[in-house]
Amino acid sequence: MSESVLPDRRNVLITGADTPIGERLARVLISDSRVDQILAVCGGDADLYPLADNSRIKPIQVDLMRSRRVRELLFGPARDEQIHVVVHLAMHRSPRARGSRAHAFNVEALRGIIALAERHPTIERLVLRSDAAVYRSRRDLPVLIGEEHPLNIGVDVPQWVRDRVEADITACVRMGLSRLQIAVLRMAEVLAPGTGSQMFDWLESPVCFRPAGFDPMINLLSLEDATSSLQKAIFSNDDGVFNIPGADTLPLTACIRAWGRLGIPVAEPAMGPLYRLRSRISGHDFRYGINRGRFHFSGVLDGTRARDVLRFVPAYPVDWPVA
């Protein structure tokens, strides 16, 4: 049972602090008077962390795939800094990362953090950045996606999605079973570079192919709203799963136009091979197999629970290049 009482002023540990969302969150928290210390866990060199010169931020490089390093992090610097909240953002962004090593990073690292945090002397709360990609998209499912919407589980689901679902469930199953408060934020796709956005990668080409005859509604989140939702979750005392929708709900074709791209409808069977070819030639990360469902059927996150509990309402639309 969640019995923890968190102080109003909180020390925060951010994994994936050197990702665009992590870095932005750290910047936001620096200017938040309710935060004392921030432990910024990076995958890369901590000395190169852009906010390293700020006295309230302590960057630290940790290989989260190694359980020993995670233990040393939590029962070393995190205990010394009296961390209250862990914000877990670390997740492979590229679908190229596959196999057991990717799984260890995406899922096992989180499993380890939860297990250690449950017996940690100061950590009381975990905020996990999950993803709308965990939801299944199918013709017989609702357009408006609530937190109880079916998850995208199956043997044919790509590892990129499967790992996200498993990480999400790993956090969910511990809710209410320990003193650790757990909040899982299932975020709409953040349309920004470096965030692992499949849509951003797809829109990078001057020509965007899409399945002919379909124009589903999609919902997109800005970097500002993503960090705002994390900030609100850090200072909340509520457990639960929360959908985090963005301020932009629009059809796929309108998205292509607003990004200043040319959309070309092609027959469905050609989509997969076309984007496999693009990936091989130019190294892009967009995979049609990951996006097939939402390129056919509308899916818009219902953010009612986040609004009512976290007081999060999307306020910053995506900065579209073409008005």
Binding site: T249, L250, P251
Partner: peptide, 10 residues
């Protein structure tokens, strides 16, 4: 209107 002139269902 969910933004961009469309409702969530299109």
């Amino acid at each position: 209107d969910a933004g961009h002139g469309y409702d969530a269902f299109g």
